[in-house]
Design a protein around this nucleic acid. Structure first.
Length: 1010
RNA sequence: GGGCGAGUGGCGGAAUUGGUAUACGCACGACACUUAAAAUGUCGCUCCGUUCGCGGAUUGAGGGUUCGAGUCCCUCCUUGCCCACCA
């Protein structure tokens, strides 16, 4: 037997698995418990598989093999997300048909996947670009259409001038095309949409896209990305009447204007704008209002607008701007609409109205109330145009508020008796004749300007009050109890500064005076609740010149003053509803999904336009609408399908008259939104999948794929599942119960791998050099599955050496010194060796521990630690056997003490097998087995054997490790204490001191406090 | 600007979820085998000190809770990813 030769071994077993596909196929008929383990199906690109693919696929492969060996009926399929722009763009450049490039890429991918030893069930392979697949994509489109969930609408859409197609909002990142980076422009076009917004909230029995997140095991980051994308916000929408500017001036009186405002409910006044806000509690701070350039008020009230030319010019100007321009504009721009004012219905104030493109037309009502004191954008705008800023929210200090962090104890210095009202202020100056620093509190409700700090000095009996502003000399006053009045003190000068907790600590170390003063006022109370975030909030409130946007207590708001923000929102909204001026309103950032594309390489939308009958669905019997082959790909702004006569010209299915086909195709995300369902029944010609098989295999138990799909694919797939659940086709409403992302594999220097940098690692090269088993193990060993990890070319030799050693060790464990494998491996002798008896206890223990550990690690997808445990197992055995060096026969003799029975040896090979399937099959065969190792049962561990009889008890003194003593594992506390105190090392440290306390943690440590 | 993570040796990373920090691997060093090198094997490898027994420090910095903190709490710093005028 020769050296470990992965090339030979791997080829051999890949051929074997290809000839025995049943080993890995999912059994429709089996009564065993199912496990659906799914990889995100790849886009078969011309560049082939990259190391990132290999990472995710290896993880799911290990998991699948493990589950099969644990008696699960595993469905582990693969397929191709084969439609898409790159193939079409390549066709435009070279004239090679996408069908051909895609087919070639699929072959390359298939070849590479087999070369990695992935145990897919190839009998269930799907390809979204084949008619037998997209027939059902079209069928699903029609299902949506018939249920009012697919509709056509003229819409302002993101248009990529380079790709010559419409993009979904999700694909127009930062105003740039996701694929080609060109700037996206806005176009008005007839487009198809899916009503994804109908499924944000629960819909009958079907959980919504939001609430459904709560019941699935997904990474939190992915859940929160989806939540943010949906962007739910709860607020109020209300009408503000528009009045002629000159009239508004006369009616300052609140009563009158409130009447005008409330009279909006009457039909005689339809002059109003409607605004949406989540901060109705700040409504009394409104000092102007803003509409988006696209807002209808500009078109409808032209006669009222005095500066209409100026407004038109501004609107024209912002129309020209792309979304990118608008976003990148550092300074907000806008123009006042002269000649009209809007009335704040709450106080009747007439306020100026602006048009500005910092307001988005697509969100809410396209109009907002502006509260510069409490909104950063409004603040910025108000500063620029010199508009008034009116504060109506006061932060709350020293009181529980949203986001407050409760802390039960604080250091003595800032434990002050002041009824929970804290503001950390440092007063530095002369106090009672001594230069000193004190830390003071502020009464709730007092603003910093009126009463800065109150301090009671108990030794004088006088309460002292300092009045002034931060950074300035304060006036100090004292309260004379006998006169019951405040008097000014002139003998002290104190400067007030804001400080944070760290500084308080520093002061405590440096200034003893301070401590004394504080202690004088302090000694009754050591424990107090304070709120850490107060310091930050206070800094923000006092420090920067900026809007402060936190909730707080409402001020300057008539009868609503003194309410908290939350209370005020409730009451103000109720008032709006009562007066019929407005109502509660929930808005979402998520908009309906634009699914039509003016492209060739996608599934045609199965709709026919007839002059008589209008829009007609293609009848089910006519599906699929096949994509024609003879098409000119050159983009024109319209779908290439428009120019295929054969495709275009069609009879109306209703009236038989002349008609035309819809020439748009579907977004590829439509194809990938349901492919996981198809795996359950991939050959079905009558249904997208039979109900019975869907119920057998779905939902997906584990889904592994890149985090870049956190929003698009994963949201759309959930939407599809919810629709199908809602319509009674599925008995589950979340498709993927457990989701894990593989982390990005970075280049060696920690940057992203990219073709342009030339630092892409090609898995083929690694396989050629080290073998697939080595690459699999290496990628799993690099670190946690979900972390981003840099590639380390040198690191792979470590796992390669490990595999070599496994192979070498296998050889060495055999009897005989001949050269041929048969002579090396006298298994009969090994099996029945009467002198050897059982596996040595040390090896048995570590083997059982490893079985337990590796099993647990695979369950938790912690492959890096699983591999390290396997390495430890082999190192232990190997080391024990090689503790004597050459000559070889002595070494073999020495292995007597580490003898392993053939049954235990089998267990070792089995637990290695999911990681290194080729090597494991090879060794398994060499052990004389004819059946594949992957048909074997995963070994169970013996719980008796993993218990340690003796442990190393750690002895700590005052938290420091001072000794380690070997004791029996179930040692009692008394015994442990006795043994510990008898230890010489411990005696030295205890010396004469008294033992105050002993903490005993069974089986682990004993901690002595002196 | 907002959201979510992460900071542990020269490097990738481990740590039973509050109980021996640095497992496993890479790189590095010494030795063995060799004419030599590679390969392989054995030993060493956080830092500082050391009389070679051991002592001290250490998980981005500072503070807190605890008998005990990489792990929990607070502040600050650095960094990654995603979102970004959504009222």
């Amino acid at each position: 037997m020769d050296k470990y030769n992965p090339k030979e071994i791997e080829k051999k077993w890949q051929d074997f698995w290809a000839k025995n596909p049943d080993n890995f196929s999912a059994k429709d008929e089996s009564g065993q418990e199912k496990a659906f383990i799914l990889d995100m199906f790849p886009y078969p690109s011309g560049t082939g598989l990259h190391v990132g693919h290999v990472e995710g696929y290896t993880a799911s492969d290990i998991y699948s093999r493990y589950k099969r060996m644990n008696g699960k009926n595993v469905l582990h399929p693969i397929g191709w997300d084969a439609f898409g722009l790159p193939a079409e763009n390549y066709a435009i450049k070279t004239g090679v048909h996408p069908k051909i490039t895609t087919q070639e890429a699929v072959e390359t991918f298939t070849h590479q996947m087999n070369a990695m030893g992935f145990s897919y069930d190839w009998s269930r392979e799907v390809n979204s670009s084949l008619p037998e697949y997209y027939k059902w994509t079209q069928w699903l489109f029609l299902l949506f259409y018939k249920n009012g969930l697919a509709y056509k609408k003229k819409a302002k859409v993101n248009w990529c001038p380079k790709c010559q197609t419409v993009l979904a909002n999700e694909q127009a990142e930062n105003g740039k095309c996701e694929r080609c980076e060109s700037e996206v422009i806005q176009k008005d076009l007839e487009q198809w949409f899916f009503k994804i917004t109908d499924f944000v909230e629960d819909n009958g029995e079907t959980s919504g896209l939001l609430s459904g997140l709560e019941k699935i095991d997904w990474p939190n980051s992915t859940k929160s990305l989806q939540k943010n994308w949906i962007g739910k916000s709860e607020g109020a929408q209300f009408k503000m009447s528009i009045v002629i500017a000159s009239e508004a001036k006369q009616s300052r009186d609140v009563e009158i204007n409130t009447e005008i405002a409330t009279s909006l409910s009457a039909p005689r006044n339809d002059m109003y704008i409607e605004v949406y806000t989540t901060r109705i509690d700040t409504v009394f701070g409104m000092t102007y209002a803003v509409v988006a350039p696209e807002h209808s008020v500009i078109k409808e009230q032209r006669s009222m607008i005095k500066n209409i030319e100026e407004i038109d010019a501004y609107v024209e100007d912002s129309k020209k701007k792309t979304d990118l321009d608008r976003m990148e504009a550092k300074v907000k721009t806008g123009v006042e609409i002269k000649g009209m004012k809007v009335i704040n219905p709450f106080n009747g104030e007439a306020l100026p109205l602006f048009v500005a493109d910092y307001v988005l037309s697509q969100y809410g009502t396209g109009a907002v109330m502006a509260v510069p004191a409490h909104d950063e954008r409004d603040f910025e705008f108000a500063k620029k145009y010199d508009l008034p800023i009116k504060e109506v929210i006061m932060p709350i200090f020293g009181e529980p508020h949203e986001g407050a962090v409760k802390r039960e104890t604080v250091s003595p210095l800032i434990q002050r008796k002041s009824d929970g009202k804290f503001l950390f202020l440092k007063m530095k100056g002369e106090l009672n004749g001594v230069i000193t620093t004190i830390i003071g509190g502020i009464e709730e409700g007092e603003s910093i300007e009126s009463a800065a700090v109150r301090e009671t000095l108990e030794e004088t009996g006088y309460e002292t009050k300092f009045i002034g502003k931060l950074g300035e000399k304060l006036e100090s006053h004292f309260y004379a109890p006998h006169k019951k009045e405040w008097r000014e003190r002139i003998d002290q000068s104190v400067v007030l500064e804001l400080i944070n907790e760290n500084e308080i600590q520093e002061i405590s170390n440096k200034e003893k005076d301070l401590q004394e003063i504080i202690w004088l006022t302090e000694n009754e109370s050591y424990k107090k609740l304070i709120y850490e975030s107060d310091i930050i909030r206070m800094n923000r409130f006092l420090g920067k010149e900026t809007a402060h946007t936190d909730d707080g207590r409402v001020i300057n708001s008539r009868e609503y003053s003194n309410l908290t923000s939350a209370e005020a929102r409730e009451k103000l909204t109720a008032w709006l509803e009562e007066k019929k001026i407005g109502q509660r309103k929930i808005n979402y950032k998520l908009r309906d999904w634009l699914v039509s594309r003016q492209r060739y390489w996608g599934a045609p939308i199965p709709i026919i336009y007839c002059e008589k009958c209008g829009e007609v669905a293609v009848p089910e019997k006519d599906l699929p609408v096949v994509l024609p082959d003879d098409v000119d790909f050159k983009p024109t702004g319209e779908s290439p399908l428009k120019y295929s006569k054969k495709f275009q010209e069609v009879r109306c299915p209703k009236c038989g008259g002349e008609a035309k086909r819809e020439s748009d195709t579907m977004d590829t995300f439509v194809c990938s939104s349901w492919y996981y369902l198809r795996y359950s029944d991939p050959k079905n010609e009558k249904e997208f999948a039979s109900k019975e098989k869907l119920e057998k295999w779905l939902p997906v138990d584990l889904y592994v794929g890149g985090a870049e799909h956190s929003v698009l694919h994963l949201l759309y797939a959930r939407f599809f599942t919810k629709v199908l659940h809602n319509l009674g086709y599925l008995n589950f409403d979340e498709p993927f119960l457990k989701l894990r992302h593989q982390g990005t594999i970075l280049a060696e220097d920690g940057t992203k791998m990219s073709k342009s940098k030339g630092n892409v690692v090609n898995p083929d090269d690694v396989v050629a050099q080290f073998g697939a088993d080595a690459l699999r193990i290496f990628e799993m060993f690099m670190g946690p599955l979900e972390d981003a990890k840099p590639w380390q070319t040198k690191g792979i030799v470590g796992v390669s050496r490990f595999l070599e050693r496994v192979y070498e060790h296998f050889k060495r464990n055999k009897k005989g010194l001949g050269d041929s494998w048969d002579e090396w491996c006298d298994f009969e002798k090994w099996k029945n060796n009467p002198e050897k008896g059982d596996t040595s206890i040390e090896i048995k223990t570590i083997l059982n521990k490893t079985i337990k550990g590796v099993s647990g690690d695979i369950e938790n997808l912690k492959f890096n630690t699983a591999i390290s445990k396997l390495m430890i197992l082999f190192n232990t055995i190997y080391k024990a056997e090689t503790n004597k060096q050459f000559p070889r026969d002595i070494r073999l003799e020495s292995s007597l003490s580490t003898f392993i029975t053939i049954d235990d040896y089998k267990k070792i090979i089995i637990i290695l097998s999911p990681f290194a399937p080729h090597l494991a099959e090879e060794l398994w065969e060499k052990l004389g087995n004819s059946e594949s190792i992957f048909l074997q049962k995963w070994p169970a561990y013996d719980p008796e054997l993993i218990k340690d009889e003796e442990i190393e008890l750690i002895v700590q003194i005052n938290g420091k490790v001072r000794d380690k003593i070997v004791v029996s594992a179930d040692i009692s506390e008394e015994e442990a204490k006795k043994l510990a105190t008898e230890s010489e090392k411990v005696k030295i440290h205890i010396a004469e001191k008294e033992i105050k306390k002993v903490i005993f943690v069974k089986g682990r440590l004993i901690s002595i406090v002196i």
